[in-house]
Design a protein around this nucleic acid. Structure first.
Lengths: 163, 163
DNA sequence: AAACGAGATGTTATAATGTTTCAAATCTCG
DNA sequence: CGAGATTTGAAACATTATAACATCTCGTTT
């Protein structure tokens, strides 16, 4: 149950998408959630991209598929995928990315390269713990945490160093 | 140079807005940034609200003012205020809130109550430090950090406990 | 098999948020 | 003052997201 999707590193992309879909099927089966064709297709598209896709990007590809979908179709699929922990919404980009910890309950954070647009999803216990302490100090009950760090990934940094 | 703007706690709101505007003038003066009437008015509205305001909320109030503003007017003012560290954009709400550390260079985080919509801005060195370590471990150069925790503030939690 | 009901999808329209573009006004500084 | 830069006005448009209601699908009950 581990889709190893690390941008910045070369990998067998097709296998990684395949694995993500397999994981998704397992997760959905165990939850009695229905991974319908549309939902699966949307998840596949998101994984194929490996860079966050907007809802309307997805719509455009579905149109190429010959599937004449309207916005609600995509947003509903995305809602489903989010609810089942299969994709994340990146608030600062209004875009969606595959979750690399499908099925696990986790607080994650994103390193977002402003140059190549790649996104790295991480879990960072230290960050989570520090955040929990802050919340507790304010008697605040956290429910949903958004942590998005925009900057330059190693690859793009190199480029901009030299040019 | 400290606008003490803590939701959850009662305070003299008018004085707090006044202080924020005074701080803003000082910051802008020291940077040779022009806090024009529109920009100041937008900042004032944001502070008066104390809950994040959307760009179109601001537009609506400006319209009441008799100021027939179009969206770019407000977005430009907001850009200016953000650039000069006077307001923050809350990505998960598409809304803006006054910065309680005007002029200081800081990474801050937000505790956002989903019930009363109040937002508490904090700086948390532990969180920042943990995030920096994570970034460094990935050779990632952070530039802009978004940390938004949605949940229930103490006041609203009480309410929902008893009802 | 037929009827039902819940969940999923289709369809149309619209709301909410944000940007591009170019012209006009205003400020700054020599 | 007058040239150049910054700021604002104004119209149109682009992007992102939702509301509302009709239709379909599929498993369950009778």
């Amino acid at each position: 149950m581990s889709a190893n999707a690390l941008p910045y590193r070369p990998h067998n992309h097709s296998a990684c998408v395949h694995q993500a879909l397999a994981d998704a099927r397992t997760v959905c089966a165990s939850r009695q959630a229905r991974l319908t064709p549309i939902r699966e297709r949307v998840l596949e598209l998101i994984w194929q991209s490996h860079k966050p896709l907007g809802a309307y990007d997805l719509l455009a590809v579905l149109a190429e598929d010959g599937h004449n979908a309207a916005p609600p179709t995509v947003y509903r699929a995305l809602d489903f995928l989010q609810q089942n922990g299969l994709v994340h919404r990146i608030a600062s980009l209004n875009a969606f990315t595959g979750c690399t910890h499908a099925g696990e309950n986790h607080t994650c954070l994103f390193l977002i390269c402003r140059s190549c647009r790649n996104v790295l999803e991480l879990t960072a216990p230290d960050v989570t713990h520090a955040l929990n302490k802050v919340s507790a100090a304010e008697a605040f009950t956290p429910e949903e945490t958004t942590i998005e760090v925009a900057g330059l990934c190693p690859g793009c940094k190199e480029g901009s160093d030299h040019d």
